[in-house]
Write a protein that binds this DNA or RNA. Structure first.
Lengths: 203, 203
DNA sequence: GTCTATAGAAGGATAGAC
DNA sequence: GTCTATCCTTCTATAGAC
């Protein structure tokens, strides 16, 4: 029955997500995914034909989920500074709940950049920035932001929240020697990163 | 003869480095490494016994090389601001010449954090920071730097140079839509990142 | 739709000749 | 020290019964 299909397909998809995020495309085993879903390996192929198909489905879903987390910033009705604070609070909280996503995505994207290209094609970046300029045109004279510096600025903002998760393996080891837990560090970071950026862009 | 040994062993090591960095531990094939070195697969095992041994040798070398790049900052005889500028110039130039190292290292470290732990153990972090405090004790009152904020600050500094390379697959796609080359962006970044940090830490 | 069994290919590792 | 040949395991994928 269709009800059963859906349940099985979803169970497979969820298990595949966990295993792929954990082990990466190359390290993941179809057998692991089957075991994790409590079903037989052959069923994976029945629903998704090949490992590659299954991976692509998982990858696309995760990438969209990640991008979607940046969106609310562009329409929130807040001052620029509050937007930055809002962003780090929301985004880091999301990553705390999905701590392995950054490393997974960055790695798989570098391994096969073509995969992400079509997702990027759908975004009208110039327009997003026009929106931001429009929303904050009265405030912008308070900041060191020029049209040319926007890529540098945006990538810097993303770096401050994404990097600690991507580098968790090292960072956690270093923090440990200082008696600081990664969780405490990340909690603190919501405010630190916002303050850092705001000071950096102020005239 | 020993001369020959050394040549072959080095050729294997170099080829292994290229292939591992390109494909990662799981994606790399012993056959690829052998082909790349222009020798037979069996020779790899003669010199390094297993794929795991070979990988560990490569990984450790690269990790040390990366860490070593942070060292000059701690003994350069410069003001704090000039140290920051010096760091980004040196570090980003190094990464421009080794653009795949960040993604490789971050990924493999997360996949197996134990590998990096013993390297971290050898670093006396508290002492490094005492050195920095000592070197700049006369300037520190000009900045918003407290002992507790040092981990946040240091990870932020690293994030700004490492992240763009780790995220190159996405970043390049976005920049492309704006008519900016990754190389130009990176060149610009040496100064942008330094200015960004300096403004962020100033009182 | 789900299972068992197995084909078929690939990859790491070793034996043995030179 | 280097090569060819091959073993053996692992993994993706499919055939076929229920």
């Amino acid at each position: 029955m269709a009800e059963n299909d859906k349940q099985t397909e979803e169970k497979i998809f969820e298990s595949a997500t966990e295993v792929f995020v954990e082990k990466g495309m190359d390290g993941a085993r179809m057998q692991d995914i089957a075991n994790h879903a409590g079903i037989n390996k052959a069923l994976l192929h029945y629903y998704y034909r090949t490992k590659d198909h299954l991976f692509n489905a998982v990858f696309e879903k995760i990438a969209k989920k990640m991008f979607a987390k940046f969106a609310p910033v562009f329409d929130a009705n807040l001052t620029l500074e509050d937007k930055i604070r809002f962003f780090y609070k929301e985004h880091i909280t999301f990553l705390q709940n999905n701590p392995r996503l950054p490393a997974f995505l960055l790695n798989e994207i570098n391994r096969n950049p073509a995969r992400i290209r079509k997702l990027i094609q759908n975004i009208d970046i110039e327009n997003l920035w026009r929106m931001l300029e429009e929303q904050h045109k009265d405030e912008l004279n308070k900041y060191n932001i020029t049209r040319e510096s926007i890529p540098q600025l945006m990538s810097s903002i993303a770096a401050l929240s994404v990097f600690p998760f991507a580098a968790r393996g090292i960072l956690e080891g270093i923090l440990e020697k200082l008696g600081i837990s990664f969780d405490d560090y990340m909690e603190e970071r919501k405010e630190f990163a916002a303050d850092f950026v705001i000071r950096a862009i102020k005239k």
